[in-house]
Amino acid sequence: MDIFDTFLNAEVFLRTWPLLIQGLWVTVQLGAASIVAGLVLGLIVSMIRLYGPVPLRLLARLYIDIFRSIPLLVLLIIVYYALPFVGLRLSPFASAMTALTLVSGAYTAEIFRAGIEAIPGGQFEASAALGLSHRQTMVDVILPQAVKIVIPPLTNNSINVVKDTALASVVAMPDLLKQATQAQALAANPTPLIGAAVIYIAVLWPLVALVSRMERRFGARSR
């Protein structure tokens, strides 16, 4: 059999294309939901980590370190297969989103912390001297400046989250990879897998390029 018929079979591709698109849609939903939830979680955790009372600060650190250490696949399997033993049964989507959010939140917290710590102390002092509250200082002075610093690493993290959604196929999520493997089994041909790979690249490459551009631009501007 010819290599094109095996890996780039047009007839198989057209037949399985709708499945792949369905899978892509699930992947995008799962990725977007986890990214947004991870951002919110990360921002809250970074605030606690920096400004909370000491015991909470330690807890935040513990959370950050643990969830940056645990392999996502292990966490996902624990959430989906182990939690039901204590009566907590989550849907595949909820399980995958929980695992992705917990890990993304840990990375995001560290990104925000680094961004905030990169703001010169004089900005905090000037705000305090003007009578701004801590909250106003954060919202009006510190975070708007930190955003510029954190956007490239946050985009990087988002790329990782979207890539990691592929792991959700192990908990029977009908995501892009799962649909592709199923289509491959049905068609007895690996073309859908190649199709899935191409779709992942097509979705993420622009983001990767964007990060490189932002890093170059912000790098040049901050001088």
């Binding site: 004089g122 900005q123 000037a126 701004l132 106003q136 708007p144 400046q145």
Partner: peptide
């Protein structure tokens, strides 16, 4: 301050307006 500590993300006018608006 010796090092000015203006808010770099705000225009000059916004720098002056911030505290009266918020506080």
């Amino acid at each position: 301050f010796q090092s000015f500590n203006l808010f770099p993300h705000l225009t000059v006018r916004e720098n002056v307006m911030l505290a009266p608006r918020r506080v």
